[in-house]
Design a binder for these strands. Sequence first.
DNA 1: TCTGGGGTCCTAGGACCC
DNA 2: TCTGGGGTCCTAGGACCC
Length: 420
Amino acid sequence: MSWGLVDVENFYVSCERQFDPSLDGVPVLVLSNGDHCAIARSAEAKAFGVKMGAPVFKMRDLIERHGFALRSSNYELYADMNRRFNQVLAEHTDEIEVYSIDESWFRLPILPDGTGDVAVARQIRDDIKRLTGLPTRIGLGPTRTLSKVANGLSKAGEKIFGGVIDLHDAELRRRLFMNWPVDEVWGIGRALAERLRPLGIRTTADLAAMCPHQARDVGTVVLERLVRELNGVGCDDLVIEPEKRKACAVTRMFGEPVSKIEDLREAMVRRAARAAEKIREQGSVAARLIGFAHGNGRKPNAPSAQRSCRLSPPTNDSRVIVRWASRMVDSMWEDGGVYTKCGVMLEDLTEQGREQTDLFAAIDNRGADLMAAMDGLNKRFGRDTLALGSAGIGARSFDTKRAMKSPAWTTRLDQIPIAR
DNA sequence: TCTGGGGTCCTAGGACCC
DNA sequence: TCTGGGGTCCTAGGACCC
């Protein structure tokens, strides 16, 4: 079987454009939580040199002068569009691994001549465009890594290759890899690229030519596998049924900086409650809670603290988790500190019912019905219909700002677009 | 004035065991 | 003056990804 990777061009921007034609042809940015940074850019915006993660406040002039359109991120919409394009993909193959919000791996049979099925890949691309409106690119190859590289190359050579590249041919790989920078390869970040440079490894061809054992010395077993994969030796399998998450984080910047302990506590409690809710969704309990709060790290003397504790027996009860998170606030708080962000992480997740018990404390399931009732109400009537008292009520100044969010066009009856 | 959020995997080193 | 050998488990931190 051949590996394939399909990814959507500028996914968030493309989603926004499906329902708002005024965004066509103008530079568009989709912003991070709190509307601080650009996390997706249209081709027009990239042409102006806007980098991934660029802070909005540094681009005010540019945005104004060239009529940029800005949108807050709308994950409800993006998740639904993700579901839609995977549904189209599923009409062509059963072997699909949903890898991220904008890309999926899949497998297709190899043709008798040993190449990937470019014709089917083109058909997938056309169908996704026709049925969801989303523009995609596809890479094919004998290994996961090669299909990923193929995908990256097809982005760069869109005009030549028509959005699909097949890297089964070793000669084609040799030619393309000579001019493909090593840091473009999936798995080579800044640190590894830095370590490879003194060894004279600058292109993907150089990396592919590396001895796997040396690769392990320079990096870890991950780099060794990467080198093998570049040479067509598969070191990875398709994961159709994803495992449950092993950790769950809820961390956010504040809309307005916080300088009162009650506010920090309330923010912390909200995040802790949300994290507990998230792990209940996947039927897990957590054995470890981490909480942190800090100010602007770019300023001297900004407060910064982190605490962790074990939850024994493991739990997903909001009341327990919130109580610990609140206790952490007391021990972290610095008088006079200005805080800009806080969050919690639940780790060591295990399936509820299979958790390690505590010799001295019985597992108390009395809260389970209560939590289920709470989740049920919030699911039916909207988030925060029912919340813990310590989480406070209503919107607060420190809540994340999302001033430019588009409607949930595809998932809320009261927000569907009207055509005339 | 202002710089996101949420994951995974791997390794080294410490603590502990017999 | 001299102090083994071989394990496991846990944690923190680094690196990477989207």
